[in-house]
């Protein structure tokens, strides 16, 4: 609960200096990170140069880290930076550099496909926004206040995640190690040259 208390003190500090009485810090941070996440996701999808696309994706991962922190999921935030922004993006950028792919001249040759994608996107967003405006089912309670009242601010910490991971989720954890081993071997087999070529040369 120490973290919550410091956050509250920081809240007061923020209000005092920004002169804002009714906006709490978590909401401001959420808006900031949500805007950043949407913009960087759009840049990832629309940039023609694969390298700038990859850099936007790194920015997107950091925005998501901020969002996880507003939800008080500290462990997930740390793993997001380590695994996604670190390991996976290094791999992606490495492959981009290795293949030396240039700018994409045109996006896709089928115009009907793009039109369908646009219409489908608009429809999906409209349905989701509409249903969430109309329904009262998910509730309008403040997530941060709720977790403080329920005393569940501790569920995102590394110690609680570790305890659950090595008790209730031990079998999936072991299964994941097998999956990673299989992926490792698969990647090596796929990426290496054919055995016959090596024998000949």
């Amino acid at each position: 609960m120490k973290r919550a208390v410091t956050l509250r003190i920081f809240d007061g500090y923020f209000f005092y200096h920004a002169g804002l009485k009714t906006v709490d810090l978590q909401s401001v941070l959420f808006m900031l990170f949500a805007f950043g996440a949407i913009v960087s996701a759009l840049l990832t999808v629309t940039r023609k140069n694969p390298v700038s696309s990859a850099m936007s994706l790194v920015a997107h991962f950091f925005m998501l880290t901020g969002l996880y922190l507003t939800l008080q999921a500290h462990f997930v935030a740390a793993v997001q930076v380590l695994v996604y922004a670190g390991a996976i993006m290094v791999l992606v950028v490495f492959v981009i550099m290795l293949l030396n792919v240039g700018r994409e001249v045109q996006q896709t040759s089928k115009r009907s496909l793009r039109a369908t994608a646009t219409v489908a996107t608009a429809a999906v967003i409209a349905v989701m926004l509409g249903s969430s405006m109309l329904s009262e089912s998910t509730g309008k309670t403040n997530l941060v206040k709720l977790s403080q009242e329920m005393g569940t601010t501790e569920i995102g910490t590394t110690s609680s995640i570790g305890k659950t991971l090595f008790t209730d989720y031990i079998f999936p954890f072991e299964a994941v190690s097998l999956l990673l081993l299989a992926a490792l071997i698969g990647a090596v087999v796929l990426a290496k040259r054919h055995v016959k070529e090596e024998v000949q040369s």
Partner: peptide
């Protein structure tokens, strides 16, 4: 601004669609 579940779900849906 009440930081409720809906905002996160809408943001998640928008990102998924992108």
């Amino acid at each position: 601004v009440n930081l409720c579940l809906d905002y996160y779900l809408i943001l998640s849906a928008v990102l998924f669609v992108i």
